[in-house]
Amino acid sequence: MKDYEIYSNLQVPKGSNIILRLDGRKFHTLAKTLNLEKPYDSNFAKLMIEVCKDLFNEFSPKFIYTFSDEINILLSEIPFSNRVEKIDSVFASLASSSITKHLNDFFDLDEIPLISFDSRIIPIPFNDINTYFKWRQDEAWRNCMNAYGIWVLKKDYSSKIANEKIKGLKSSDIHNLLFDKGINLNNLPVWEKRGIGFYKKNKKIKGFNPKTNSDTISYRNYLFTDCNLEMFSKDFFKTINLKHD
């Protein structure tokens, strides 16, 4: 019967750089259940931060980037003998269990809804990693503009008409619409515009060596949550020490 498991040995090519992209399944329904604030809910962002921390602590990737209900994971090592089925299923299930675990830390629910993520593997050349994350960050910015645009339009129009109107607006039109309502997109929290990043940083540790009777300095890695991301560039990824293994 093992022969029927025709995809079980499908593997990512050895030596590949891979990104896993997780997306929340039916999170528009979850948003209604949680009664999320519009256009952005800080508690939901905090919830996603906890999920990303759990993923980072479990698998020690090079970098994680999240916005909305999307999580992008750049792996430092490919686990599970490179098996595609195993990687996709375990990462998606861990994210699902993590968000369920932390849900009531931020939302008061009598009954926990069923929550799931899907997962896809993206093999990518090292030199295109910056391009990929820049693409996703551009999407985060578009989401931000549209979220605020539709939020403002719904104050004057029905949901159906507001959605129709936002589709016909250019970025400059949304800027002007919001500015007329007293909203300057430049003044929004950075995490709303650019998403949130997770990576390792060095922390200086001061100590004392009793044998030499002198102060000592050492450095320790720790997981840093960056809610004030700069625009992604090659220089950014050099700064976080993203090296080609």
Rank of each mutant, 00 (worst) to 15 (best):
I161C: 09
N202G: 02
I115D: 03
N17L: 03
Y4T: 11
G182V: 02
S68F: 00
I73N: 15
R220E: 15
C52E: 10
N241C: 05
I240T: 02
E85Q: 12
F236K: 06
S233C: 09
F27R: 01
N9H: 10
Y148P: 10
Y219P: 14
E111Y: 08
E58V: 04
I78M: 09
Y7A: 05
S60A: 14
E77S: 12
L47F: 04
S119G: 05
N186T: 12
H175G: 09
A140F: 06
S93A: 14
I64N: 10
R21Q: 04
I19G: 10
I115M: 10
I64G: 12
N35G: 07
F91G: 10
S76T: 04
T29G: 15
N184K: 13
N184A: 04
K181W: 14
I124S: 11
E139Q: 08
R25Y: 13
V84H: 15
E164L: 08
L109W: 05
S233A: 08
L22Q: 04
F27C: 01
G182A: 01
S42R: 14
N143I: 02
L153S: 04
F179C: 07
D156Y: 11
L178M: 02
L229P: 14
F133G: 11
V84C: 15
T100W: 13
L229E: 08
D156S: 05
Y222V: 00
G15V: 00
F67A: 06
S214G: 07
R120T: 04
P189N: 00
I115S: 07
K53Y: 11
G197A: 05
Y219G: 03
Y7N: 09
